[in-house]
Amino acid sequence: MRHLLSAADLDRATAVHLLDTASQMAATQAREIKKLPTLRGRTVVNLFFEDSTRTRISFEAAAKRLSADVINFSAKGSSVSKGESLKDTALTLQAMGADAVVVRHQASGAPHRLAHSGWVDGAVVNAGDGTHQHPTQALLDAFTLRRHLRGDADNPDGVGLDLTGLHVAIVGDVLHSRVARSNVNLLHTLGAEVTLVAPPTLVPVGAESWTSRTSYHLDQVLADQQPDAIMMLRVQRERMGGDGTGAGRTGFFPSPLEYTRAYGLDARRLALLPEHAIVMHPGPMNRGLEISADAADSPRAVIVEQVANGVAVRMAVLYLLLAKEKETTP
């Protein structure tokens, strides 16, 4: 593994190895001294062209816990706002000697361009590109699923196991969601079954060719399929434009209230889920739109734990990409 660009690039063995490594990383984070000397002298650049709270902080924490030097770059307040191109920004970073570049970009495929153009020598980690992929989010979701649904008293993290036989429902704005795409790829690779639930307007063209099932009816999926986990997606209104007329209306559903009635997770739907099922959300949440406070704050919600697991998973990714001899083949 030289770069991490897409969850679809990971085979089952690599993905399980990554999750196992993350589990060892998580164990070190329970100690009093959390910092490890592993990546001392390495430089990680966080290149964020799009707003982010948890992903950027999570990558920064992960790199710092491994003793790497972290340089944060956000498009706001940089020369990008003066019109500098991705290429020139990348060449600047290369001149400063970055060993890894963590990139988030509003354009799908920007990390791929960065990795294969020869602009930078270092490893490229995709931290979300447009509506394409967000592989570390899928990995942390898989890690959380495995810990809760496959782990037992002897093996709390489910080390060595995959997700065979688990059923996960991914609900909401699939159209704009890179999290959903990455999860469909990775969870399928790990053997889980995925059902996408969304209004027809928010199902992407070609979704029928994905390795998941699609449904338009949330209640039906909850009652008939009894999923082991339900993952609520954020309604990405910033990507929906203002086709509707005022008051949070968009061209994709008649009104926020109607969306909540059909696809929101509330206390009633929570009760329909099986006893062991967990509630996930990649954040940030629109409370009252796709998830109610009842569901978000229930003991079955693992949303805060997902954030904690994110640090361990990103430590594992940085470790596996950086703590080895340099590969010369791209």
Binding site: T21, Q24, A27, P37, T38, A323, K324, E325
Partner: peptide, 21 residues
């Protein structure tokens, strides 16, 4: 006691698997 992450020769080998501490 896993010492993988404390080794001084990490950059000379393919990635090592981390053991449990």
């Amino acid at each position: 006691l896993d010492v993988t992450m404390y080794r001084d020769d990490l950059h000379r080998h393919p990635t090592r698997t981390i053991g449990a501490t």
